[in-house]
């Protein structure tokens, strides 16, 4: 027989492992949370959303007696993970992190959940978009850029996401607010866009600040402006668009959410838990190291923010012909 005596120990070990979760679960009503919490990241492991999610989960874990298991449920531009949370049991044991893609995909993708299908409980922070140009383009300011775009011999080529992606939205908003016409060149994600502007295939890009910060410091790329309320801590010398007279605030952001209909007390517990986690200076320092902007907000404020974002986004999507699922 192929299976000889050596396997006996392995088998005993396996029995113990299989039986252990059964043994622990003896059904008495304990205060929430008494079981492990599942934390759903709606993008693949290794990306920005994943790193942010894992960091939040790690620090939230320190305030709890139960473990938090981070899982990645990705697909359909982030919509699959949101559906996973929205359809989970409303017992407070499933929490998720999401970003701006939620707002865009509810219009683009007929199968995506809308903002109303979930309950956003706290805001982590924005990841503002910025406008970068190659230094050899001779463009030195936002004003130069707009002028070149309006009167240059050929349109400026801008590297961005596929339609509906954050950097595509930023580029479209930029066109609308400054009355310029760019050639929007689509790339699959941030890394290829970075490669494109570094290699000179495109002249400008609308990526988040940290993507090109090294090249900005080296002088190959110039960041003309940040599309946020305040300047970015990684590039304090770069003016915001508002400071340069253009009211453009956009980019990605990250927030924590639950399925709808969570019992009142658990909802309050989780809202406080994550707000305190994100406000924790130790967490904020760790987040800065990973180049995340942290501006904690409670549920009420976050909802207003998302509504506001929704309102500014809708006309852009409508104009790009991307509103295919729900009308407003």
């Amino acid at each position: 027989m192929a299976f000889n005596i050596n396997y006996r120990r392995l088998v005993i070990a396996a029995v113990i492992i299989i039986l252990s979760p059964v043994a622990c679960n003896n059904g008495t009503e304990a205060p929430f949370p008494s079981n492990p919490i599942t934390f759903v990241v709606n993008w693949p492991a290794g990306g920005g959303m994943d790193r942010a999610g894992r960091l939040v989960a790690e620090y939230a874990r320190k305030r709890l007696d139960v473990p938090i298991a981070v899982i990645n449920v990705s697909g359909a531009g982030g919509a699959t993970g949101v559906r996973h949370v929205a359809e989970s049991d409303p017992d407070g044991y499933t929490v998720g992190i999401l970003g701006a893609s939620l707002v865009a995909s509810q219009y683009i993708n007929p199968n995506a959940n809308s903002v109303d299908d979930i309950d956003i409980i706290s805001f982590i922070g924005p990841d503002p978009a910025a406008l970068q140009v190659r230094s050899d383009s001779g463009i030195n300011s936002l004003e130069d850029y707009v002028q070149r775009a309006q009167s240059g011999p050929t349109p400026i080529k801008n590297g961005n996401d596929a339609p509906g992606g954050v950097s595509h939205i930023a580029a479209t908003l930029l066109q609308r607010l400054t009355n310029i016409e760019l050639t929007l060149v689509p790339y699959r994600g941030y890394a290829p866009t970075v490669a494109a502007i570094v290699s000179g295939e495109v002249q400008s890009s609308t990526l988040p600040v940290h993507q090109l910060i090294d090249q900005h410091e080296a002088g190959d790329i110039k960041i003309l402006g940040v599309m946020s309320e305040e300047r970015h801590f990684m590039a304090p010398d770069v003016l915001t668009f508002k400071e340069q007279g253009i009211d453009l605030v956009t980019g990605d952001w990250r927030a924590i959410y639950l399925p709808n209909n969570i019992p009142e007390d658990r909802h309050a517990f989780l809202e406080t838990l994550f707000f305190e986690t994100i406000s924790d200076p130790e967490f904020q320092e760790a987040a800065r190291q990973l180049s995340f902007f942290i501006t904690p907000m409670m549920a009420e404020e976050t909802k207003l923010f998302v509504e506001d974002f929704d309102r500014s986004l809708y006309p852009v999507l409508l104009e790009s012909g991307l509103v295919k699922a729900r009308q407003k």
Binding site: A76, T80, N109, N111, A162, P163, P186, R188
Partner: peptide, 20 residues
């Protein structure tokens, strides 16, 4: 799945399962 340039879904046979 979704086309990169135009964001139009192709060969998805109307199911969300194939869109990504």
């Amino acid at each position: 799945g979704f086309d990169l340039v135009t964001d139009v879904p192709r060969f998805d046979f109307g199911t969300s399962a194939l869109q990504s």
